[in-house]
Structures are given as structure tokens and as C-alpha cells.
Design a protein around this nucleic acid. Structure first.
Lengths: 237, 237
DNA sequence: GAACCCTTTATTGTATACAATAACAGATCG
DNA sequence: CGATCTGTTATTGTATACAATAAAGGGTTC
């Protein structure tokens, strides 16, 4: 009995199915450690970090830390001052707006291509991931972390399906920001449900191989996601 | 007599006006040297390079070479094998197609925003650069290098005018590829003239602050550029 | 007390030696 | 032969010491 692509992933953790990150070596230790630190919220946006400090945090020498910092810089979780010092990125509402706008363009394009390229097995995988997402929402209380994981994987599958390495590389720079992830914890159940419904419709568009439909749904999905974020963020003030 | 932004650049070399690259230190020496080497055409696409070799070429130690390689990897002039070895990128026609498609999306967006944000001084600068470009075309024979320089700066001004650091960063990854630059040498005068006319129309759209017009012209400009490239490349076979 | 210069300290940049790993080539065995 | 094992070499990865540079502090002068 052979294992096709859909069945392959059935018994492994969801977050392993779409793995883009090499996981070994001190560079990756540093990357993972620093990223967790930034996403944990313990690092105040705008505060300075030094390579030595990050070296302590991650337990490896400065050399791999420097590589990790470069990567996190390109993902815009870190920024550098004029004199090359390292700071935790501080995203304004306009910055987040622009990020979602870019994602809308690029992921809209990805969805368009995916509609033409996705096979039945791929679509089955998308449904599987979206089931996971639905379950996370329908828990009481909803499991936001599980939701965000499934959501990320759902989008990654589509991005990869577009079979454009350049597009994937560019989108990797526009991942969710700490401020967005933190804000997600206070989304309403209805917000999460609507997101899941968007995914349902996206899958329907893929099944119909309707590129324009897919782009359109992806566009409104991401645009609404921005406003959900913006509302939650302003409520938090 | 004060110096406004337009007059500031009048006496400095054109390529200095829009400088996004920090120019100092061994890392930049390495970056510049390796990039020149790749663009010179002496490096066969697909061939392997080692850090030691690049270190010899650029005259600095492996540490800054590694940083430069990372940068050139993100600009997709270099690629890495499964085992992390370094190779000169080898772009297929489809890869180039996809690159121009992504540029069309992103620079179309940039043009849209630029149409709203560009001031008279900025537009004057664009005109100045496009004059340069016209002159390069009207020389006999046309000066393709001068043309490409002016063209790059023209597009960079628009990208920067969009005032979206993320957009600029993403577009920096989609710069012109060696194969495109080499092919440009055999563009017909008429191809170059049409390019210059596109720029004229772009400037007209900016003067009218007509975002939709600007996006549209940028779109057809880049799309035609791809076909010009593709035709020239297939002729060269 | 405010601006300037000088010293000291903090931080990043570079070179280099060594460690880890992958590719290569030749020998051995079926 | 062909496959596989093994030692050798090529190449990248990591740690660390030192160099270069920017920031911070502290004293001096006007």
C-alpha cells in the first residue's frame, strides 16, 4: 500500500506538514530562540538588543546570532538604527495596514495560481487543515493558538501551491507580526467563524478551479482580517 | 539660496541620487565585488562558488563574504544546494516571467501610491532622470549601460515615493537579473524608445495625480519589457 | 549652564582557527 | 561489473580574539 501526499501527513503534527524552516545547527537555535522571545511579548517594541544579549538568550555564540538577526531583520521583527544597533521592531497601525495590503496582492495572486494548479489531494489537505481550524473555533473557549497555527498552514499550502519560489520567498517576509498575534487573543468568536467560512469559500473556489473567485475571496479575507485586527487593537487602548 | 531636493542632486553622479546601499566596510566590498562578478557574465549560471573563492575575489575574509552571500541569496543571484553549497542562480524563462509578473503587481501598486504622494520637486527629478534616459537612447550607438542605470534609478524613485519600507524591501529582492541585463544589449532602438515613451506617460500620469493611469502604464511597461526580453533571448539561441 | 573636546565604555565588524558535515575516490566484497 | 564501505578531501558552520566605530560620560572653558 503506497502513501500518497494526502495520507502522508495524517499522523504527524499539523505544524510539521508545511515545514519551510531547516531545523538544525546553532543558527537555527538562535533564530528559533530569538523569534520566540520576540513573539512572547517580553521584548518591548523599540527597545534595544545587543548581539551579546541575544547570544546569552539563545546559548550560542555571536556568529550564528548575527545570521539569525539578519533573517529576523528581513522578516522585519528587528530593525537597525543608523549606527547598526539592533532594536525590536515597532509597527504602527499604518505599517500593519500596508503589510496586509501587500499580502492581499501577493496571496491573491497565489490563490489565483493555486486555483489552476491544486490537485484533489492538495484540496483534501486544505480541507483537513480547515477542519482543524473549525474545531479550534468551536471549542469552548476557542483555542486561538491552535486557530493561528492552522490558519498559517492553510495559507502556506496555498502559497506553495502557486509554485513560484520567488513569490514564496517574498511572502515569507510578510509573516504575522507580534502585535497581530497578541491582538488575535481578543478576537470575537464571530470573527474567527467568519475567517473559517472564508476558508470554506476559498476551498469551494479551488474545487471549481475559478481563479478570479479565489483571488477575490482571498482579497476580502485578508482585508477583513486587517480591520478585525485594527478594531481589536483600538479596543485594547 | 536654499537647496531643495531637486537641485541637491544636480551636480552629483546620477547613480548617487538614489542610494539605498550603505557603502563602507568589508561586507559591502564583498557584496559589490561578488555582484559585479555575477553581473559580468564570467560566472556561468549553475556553477558552484565557494566562500574561499569569493573571499579571494573580493579580498576580504570569509566572514563578510558570508554576509554578502546571504544578501545575494535574498536577491536570488545566488542559490544554495540541499547541502548549503553556493551556486550561481540559473533563471529559466518562466522564472523571469514570474519575476516580471511580481514586479508588475508591486510596482503597479507603488506607482498608484506615488501618483498621490509625489510632489513637484520629485516629478522634476523624474523628468531629469528620464532626460538622461532619452539621451542614452538617442546616442549613436545607444548607450545601453547608461540607459539601464537611468532606468533603474527612475523605478527606484517611484518605489521610494510610495513611502512603504516593506514594499521597497520586497522589491529590492526582485532586481534585474544578469540574464536580463545581458540580453538588454541587443534590444532594438525602437524597444528602448518605447521604454522611454512609457516613462514619459508615467510622468504625465503622476502630474495628473491619476493613480489608476499610473498603475496601468506601469503594468504594460513591465509586461512589454518581459516580452522584449523573451524575444531577444530567443533570438540569441 | 551650555557647548566643546577628550577619555572611556559599549557595540558591532572582521579575521582566523577549529569543528562538523557533505562530497569524492578508491578499495573490497558480492 | 556494481554496490557499498571507508578514509580523505572540500566546504560550510561556529567560537573567539581582536579591530573599528559609535555612544556615553566628565571635565573644561567661555
Amino acid at each position: 500500500m503506497h502513501m500518497d501526499r494526502a495520507s502522508q501527513g495524517r499522523d504527524v503534527p499539523l505544524w510539521r506538514i508545511v515545514g519551510s524552516h531547516r531545523m538544525s545547527g546553532a543558527s537555527d537555535t538562535a533564530y528559533t530562540a530569538i523569534r520566540s522571545y520576540l513573539l512572547s511579548g517580553d521584548a518591548p517594541p523599540g527597545s534595544q538588543l545587543t548581539e551579546d544579549r541575544l547570544s546569552e538568550i539563545s546559548g550560542v555564540s555571536r556568529t550564528p546570532v548575527r545570521e539569525a538577526v539578519r533573517q529576523l531583520e528581513s522578516e522585519m521583527l528587528l530593525v537597525r538604527s543608523e549606527s547598526k544597533r539592533i532594536f525590536v521592531a515597532d509597527w504602527s497601525r499604518d505599517d500593519i495596514d500596508e503589510m496586509f495590503t501587500l499580502r492581499q496582492m501577493l496571496e491573491g495572486h497565489a490563490a489565483e495560481r493555486a486555483a489552476k494548479l491544486l490537485g484533489p489531494a492538495d484540496i483534501e489537505q486544505l480541507e483537513q487543515v480547515n477542519d482543524e481550524l473549525h474545531q479550534a473555533v468551536d471549542q469552548d473557549p476557542p483555542d486561538v493558538v491552535r486557530f493561528l497555527d492552522a490558519n498559517r498552514i492553510f495559507h502556506e499550502i496555498i502559497t506553495n501551491a502557486a509554485r513560484s519560489p520567488r513569490l514564496a520567498q517574498v511572502l515569507a517576509m510578510l509573516v504575522e507580526q507580534p502585535v497581530v498575534l497578541r491582538t488575535a487573543r481578543q478576537y470575537s468568536v464571530e470573527d474567527l467563524r467568519q475567517s473559517a467560512r472564508d476558508h470554506d469559500e476559498l476551498i469551494a473556489a479551488f474545487k471549481a478551479h475559478d481563479a478570479a473567485w479565489a483571488r477575490s475571496v482571498m482579497g476580502s479575507h485578508l482585508r477583513r482580517a486587517f480591520h478585525t485586527f485594527a478594531d481589536a487593537a483600538s479596543d485594547a487602548d
